[in-house]
Simulated scan of single mutants.
Amino acid sequence: MDVLDIKVRVKTRHLPEHLPSDSKQFAFAYHITIENNSDKTVQLINRYWKITDANGKTSEVQGAGVVGKQPILKAGEQFEYTSGAVIDTPVGNMEGYYEMELEDGERFRLPIDIFRLAIPSILH
């Protein structure tokens, strides 16, 4: 199968208000936009994330859909959602994939490139 023209865009932000001020952890939101620029209808079935903090500690998250949904994207449609992650350091990263399904039942992995989680004052 050819790789379909489906794009994943990510925006992240630090959420200091989501944890107590004395917390030793750091909360981040990530906003995902999935654009189906192909001529096929696809459905997001499962997700997989690998989250790594600056100390090299990793955690994995996998399961059905995203934010309780398994969205269907017809040709030209997009789906957006926001979720979050909590890590032990002010900088970390995430990467993963979505398991997608075509109308004929064929499944494929849509890779999500590594992206950074960082509090604004850390990186210049």
Score class of each variant (00 low, 15 high):
Leu117Asp: 09
Ala85Lys: 07
Gln70Ala: 06
Val8Trp: 09
Ala54Met: 13
Glu95Pro: 03
Asn37Thr: 10
Thr33Asp: 14
Arg109Phe: 12
Leu102Arg: 10
Phe28Asp: 07
Thr12Trp: 06
Asn93Glu: 02
Gly105Glu: 02
Thr89Arg: 05
Leu19Thr: 01
Gln43His: 05
Glu60His: 13
Ala54Asp: 13
Pro111Leu: 08
Pro120Ile: 08
Asn36Cys: 13
Ala118Cys: 13
Ser38Thr: 12
Gly96Tyr: 03
His14Leu: 06
Glu101Ser: 06
Arg13Val: 00
Ser23Glu: 03
Ala29Trp: 00
Gln70Thr: 15
Ile34Asp: 13
Ala118Thr: 14
Phe26Glu: 06
Gln25Gly: 04
Ile72Tyr: 01
His18Thr: 03
Arg9Gln: 14
Ile45Leu: 10
Asp22Ser: 09
Val61Ile: 12
Tyr30Met: 13
Asp22Ala: 06
Val66Trp: 04
Ala75Val: 12
Lys24Met: 10
Glu101Lys: 10
His18Asp: 01
Lys40His: 13
Arg109Lys: 15
Thr41Phe: 05
Gly76Tyr: 11
Ser83Gln: 07
Trp49Asp: 11
Ile51Ala: 13
Leu102Asn: 04
Thr52Ile: 14
Glu106Gly: 02
Leu44Glu: 06
Leu73Thr: 08
Thr82Ser: 12
Arg47Asn: 15
Val91Thr: 07
Gln70Leu: 02
Thr82Gly: 03
Pro120Ser: 02
Ala64Met: 03
Ala54Ile: 01
Asp113Gln: 01
Leu19Ala: 03
Thr41Ala: 12
Arg9Trp: 04
Lys50Val: 13
Gly92Glu: 00
Tyr98Leu: 12
Met100Thr: 10
Gln78Tyr: 15
Ile112Leu: 11
His31Arg: 14
Gly105Lys: 01
Val10Met: 04
Met94Tyr: 00
Glu35Pro: 09
Leu19Cys: 01
Ser59Glu: 09
Thr52Arg: 15
Glu17Cys: 00
Val10Phe: 02
Thr12Glu: 02
Ala85Thr: 11
